[in-house]
């Protein structure tokens, strides 16, 4: 492969990896606080993508309004999911929560299937996000720069929130010791809702960007990116915010390079991610950066 070709693939990989990272953060935050793998998380990509279509195509809103509205509703639905599917099971065995998460995922997918149909809808990508340019012989879609850029800004904001605000302190405390946090009079339920809102909004951003990158939206859009992001979170060390970002990038880049180097294997790109998951779980179950449960400042 030429250097230009490699650079090209690297850009693609970083762009894909950033999307995984955005979604992986939600898995890792919820795991840090509830010790739950929120399997419905990936479906919020799909939710946000459909909401984006409604805003843009049905209501003809300007894209910033449509996107913000889609994200706000996605965040709200995230909090509702916790209220309906997880909070009632707060004192139940962890396995019940997991089953509830899988159920919630099926529910979301099938609600979309019933009400929106199985036929993929085209995503009307706003002009700002479309197009591409050429630099030094490289063909770079505008999105390939926007995706990592947006991801970087959002993650920086999240890290500031977690490590420098009172709310962030409380989140870290909650991840370490639920009872001790409640004993300080801190409204634990509100923090949990906030965790779901933040995670869902990040997944929503991921969903909108995903829908512009691959502009076909169907009810199962979130399944595979969701699973890959989960793998990314495990790869980086679940519960570890920085780990989710590293895991996402590593997975995205490896996946793209694998396909580029071995075009004949491109059909196995998804299988590759799962093989990687199995290897990580066998070799180093706490992932690359270790399972730090959001306690560390970074």
């Amino acid at each position: 492969m030429t250097w230009a070709g490699f650079a090209q693939q690297l850009i693609n990989g970083i762009s894909l990896g950033s999307l995984y990272a955005l979604v992986a953060i939600g898995y890792t935050m919820v795991y840090g606080i509830l010790r739950l793998i929120n399997f419905a998380h990936g479906d919020f990509l799909m939710v946000a993508a459909y909401l984006g279509i409604f805003g843009l195509a049905m209501f003809s809103l300007p894209w910033p309004v449509a996107f913000l509205a889609a994200l706000a509703i996605t965040g709200l639905l995230g909090a509702l999911l916790e209220r309906g599917a997880y909070r009632p099971l707060r004192r139940a065995p962890r396995l019940s929560l997991l089953i509830s998460a899988i159920g919630a995922s099926f529910l979301l997918e099938n609600l979309a299937l019933v009400f929106l149909g199985g036929r993929p809808l085209p995503f009307p990508t706003p002009a700002v996000f479309a197009g591409s340019f050429q630099v030094a012989g490289l063909y770079i879609p505008r999105l390939s720069l926007l995706i990592p850029g947006i991801t970087l800004i959002l993650l920086a904001a999240l890290f500031v929130l977690v490590s420098h605000t009172r709310t962030g302190m409380a989140l870290r405390a909650l991840a370490h010791d639920w009872e001790a946090t409640a004993l300080l009079g801190i409204n634990v339920n509100r923090l949990i809702s906030l965790t779901f809102i933040l995670g869902s909004i990040l997944a929503g951003v991921g969903g909108l960007l995903w829908a512009m990158k691959y502009p076909q939206v169907n009810p199962f859009l979130g399944v595979l990116p969701g699973l890959k992001a989960f793998i990314a979170a495990v790869l980086g060390g679940i519960g570890n915010l920085a780990g989710a970002v590293v895991g996402g990038l590593v997975l995205g880049i490896l996946e793209v390079l694998l396909v580029a180097w071995f075009p004949a294997w491109s059909g196995y790109r998804d299988a590759f991610a799962f093989v990687l998951l199995i290897i990580v779980l066998l070799a180093s179950p706490t992932g690359l950066l270790g399972e730090s449960i959001m306690e560390d400042k970074l």
């Binding site: 009172r166 302190m169 370490h176 010791d177 001790a180 306690e295 560390d296």
Partner: peptide, 14 residues
């Protein structure tokens, strides 16, 4: 039951 990974100041602020 202090929060070992938070600083002394952060523990107090909470």
């Amino acid at each position: 039951r202090i929060f070992p990974n938070l600083t002394v100041q952060e523990n107090l602020i909470l």
